[in-house]
Computed example of a mutant assay.
Amino acid sequence: MILIADSGSTKTAWCLVEDGRIKQQIKTKGINPFFQSEEEIQEEIGKGLIPYLPTHRMGEVHFYGAGCAFPDKLAIIHRVITSHFEVTREVEVNTDMLAAARSLCGHLPGIACILGTGSNSCHYDGRDIVENVSPLGFILGDEGSGAVLGRVLVGNILKNQLPTEMKNEFLNQYGLSASEIIDKVYRHPFPNRFLASLSPFLAQHIDVPEIRRLVLESFKDFLKRNVMQYDYNQYPVHFTGSVAFYYQDILRQATQETEIELGNISQSPMEGLVKYHQTVRNN
């Protein structure tokens, strides 16, 4: 059996594969060693995943996650996995960016992008990531992500840049006051998750010109500040993630206005990852 994990800041999708077929899928909370301790990750996997699996004996475990870009963070995930599973062949821990590239491009070169709670991008040569513009997180970067869309939305609402009736509707819908929003952003853990949880308000009002423009400009910022640093004229640009999937009509507009060739758009990289690892095993 092969266990594949695709972990973002908000949730982790686990897929158990047997003989090339998906046997079981489980979702747990997001796992990010950059923000969570080894003990917290141990607890999440121990309580949220292990009790629901039919076996702890795996041929391979492939964990792709946000925050898995540094050796010490990779080591944390590797230790947690090997403490919970008996793995006979391989334990691989790598970035969620490589998961997106393998899922979207397979064994062909291209530019792969993530637009979810956070955002990221890379130039992939069909095997490895050869260029990566640092996403820098939702404060300094993460253009086009759910967290940044939520951040800009909240900023515009609290600074009265949107109609008063829309501001009141937002605060009533989420049951929040201005002081509560500020407290959640500056004092509570995982402010990126909180901000991303507010971004669906944009989808509900996407026909409002100010809202559509907000999303469009954020996507164009992502393309200009990230994708255009690669040799983007030579390759299709693919996207995965909930934001890319649910706002794909605006994403298409953004790529057209920046003269970028749009490739595949998927909601999740998991289906492509299953295909990728099956072809690797067969070769």
Rank of each mutant, 00 (worst) to 15 (best):
Tyr276Lys: 00
Ile31Asn: 06
Asn172Asp: 11
Gly175Asp: 12
Ile76Met: 13
Phe85Asn: 10
Cys105Val: 03
Cys68Asp: 02
Leu104Met: 14
Val133Leu: 14
Gly126Pro: 05
Pro54Arg: 06
Asp72Val: 04
Lys220His: 02
Asp96Trp: 02
Ile265Ala: 12
Val87Phe: 01
Gly146Asn: 06
Leu16Pro: 03
Phe34Trp: 10
Glu40Tyr: 07
Ile260Thr: 12
Glu92Leu: 11
Arg213Gly: 13
Ser119Val: 04
Met58Ser: 00
Leu195Gln: 05
Gly106Gln: 05
Asn226Phe: 02
Asn283Lys: 05
Asn192Tyr: 15
Phe239Val: 03
Asn192Val: 12
Thr279Phe: 02
Ser83Thr: 12
Asn192Arg: 05
Phe194Pro: 01
Leu214Arg: 03
Leu198Ala: 02
Ser83Lys: 11
Gly116Ala: 10
Val215Trp: 01
His62Lys: 10
Met97Pro: 08
Thr10Ile: 03
Val61Pro: 03
Ser218Met: 02
His205Ser: 06
Pro71Trp: 02
Glu43Pro: 03
Asn233Tyr: 05
Leu216Thr: 00
Gly150Ile: 07
Leu158His: 02
Asp125Asn: 13
Leu214Thr: 04
Glu271Ser: 02
Met270Gln: 07
Leu162Asn: 01
Asp142Leu: 12
Glu44Asp: 08
Ser197Arg: 08
His62Leu: 14
Gly110Met: 00
Ser145Tyr: 08
Ala178Asp: 09
Gln36Phe: 05
Ile50Leu: 13
Trp14Lys: 03
Leu49Ala: 03
Gly141Tyr: 14
Gly155Asn: 09
Ile77Pro: 04
Asp128Glu: 11
Arg213Thr: 14
Ser119Met: 11
Ile50Pro: 12
Ala66Asn: 04
Asp183Leu: 10
Ser83Met: 03
His123Ile: 09
Gln25Arg: 11
Asn94Arg: 12
Leu262Cys: 15
Met97Tyr: 14
Asp96Gly: 09
Ile250Gln: 05
Gln36Gly: 04
Arg193Lys: 13
Glu86Gly: 11
Phe138Lys: 14
Ile114His: 15
Arg212Tyr: 12
Asn156His: 11
Phe222Tyr: 03
Ala112Cys: 15
Asp19Ile: 06
Glu39Asp: 10
Ser145Gly: 07
Tyr64Asn: 13
Lys23Val: 07
Gln278Arg: 14
Ala254Met: 04
